[in-house]
Design a protein around this nucleic acid. Sequence first.
DNA 1: TACTTGACAAGAACGTTTCTTAGATAATAT
DNA 2: ATATTATCTAAGAAACGTTCTTGTCAAGTA
Lengths: 140, 140
Amino acid sequence: MSDVSNKNMKMTPQRIAIMKYLDGNTAHPSAADIYVALQEQFPTMSLATVYNTMETLKQQRVVVELSIDPGKKRFDPNTQPHHHLICIKCKTVLDIFVDFPLPLSDRETGGFQILGNRVDFYGICKTCGDTPREMIQTNR
Amino acid sequence: MSDVSNKNMKMTPQRIAIMKYLDGNTAHPSAADIYVALQEQFPTMSLATVYNTMETLKQQRVVVELSIDPGKKRFDPNTQPHHHLICIKCKTVLDIFVDFPLPLSDRETGGFQILGNRVDFYGICKTCGDTPREMIQTNR
DNA sequence: TACTTGACAAGAACGTTTCTTAGATAATAT
DNA sequence: ATATTATCTAAGAAACGTTCTTGTCAAGTA
């Protein structure tokens, strides 16, 4: 993903900035996160542009959209299949690159054509587990 | 769940109706789904009441909130651990009751205290696979 | 009876996402 | 070089889904 170029989409300064911001980013940012992060660099860029760009990047399979957070889309620049550890307190999402065998028989799928899977583990992250409740700052 | 009574919460006609509607319901309805389904029976009930009730039922562990649908919460009256088959076309969600071993080493979790997991399979359901594109009606 | 508590409807408010419009920019063809 | 076309952008409006606030009512308690 570190190559910021693509023949299938027009590369504009805004898109390049968004892709650079996402490159190597493991925080699974939302559209609003991306928007505020690039505010300084592009004070005139609107949220709609972020959404449009993310939609384009999604279609180009440069990012994956996550529905981990209720009421908020978050994006993952890592398009390799991997799973997530989600902290139910601070909503931090960590990547895990373990491949689990998930066999399903035809009887279980019942004509359903399976294209992919997603495994989410939820629990308490190290920070939230170690830190007294009143000191935890939820990111989102 | 078929027992519509609970000592920890006041049972009102609205709540009883919502619980009855959810009982055995495998469609994973959203708040709006529940609201419109009960419109005829309770024309004066507001959407806020549905949300309040679902929050209460969630805390009583009568339902589980799903973040399967981006931008929409859906609820599952089946609180037994199970996984989901999600059709990416019509958003139908089917339950599967298979238990997969999902071992994670301490190195992989890195201090993360795991409380549960969720496995979502996504693909094309039988109906959407069999039916020509222009005839498919997306439920949501 | 008075007091307290919880639930309700109604609508306002909020956050997220999509849509619409008009103007700017780049690619292609003339 | 100029015209044409398509694409991208900002800006704001609009549409959702969800939460919050307010006033009202009913049930339970002292």
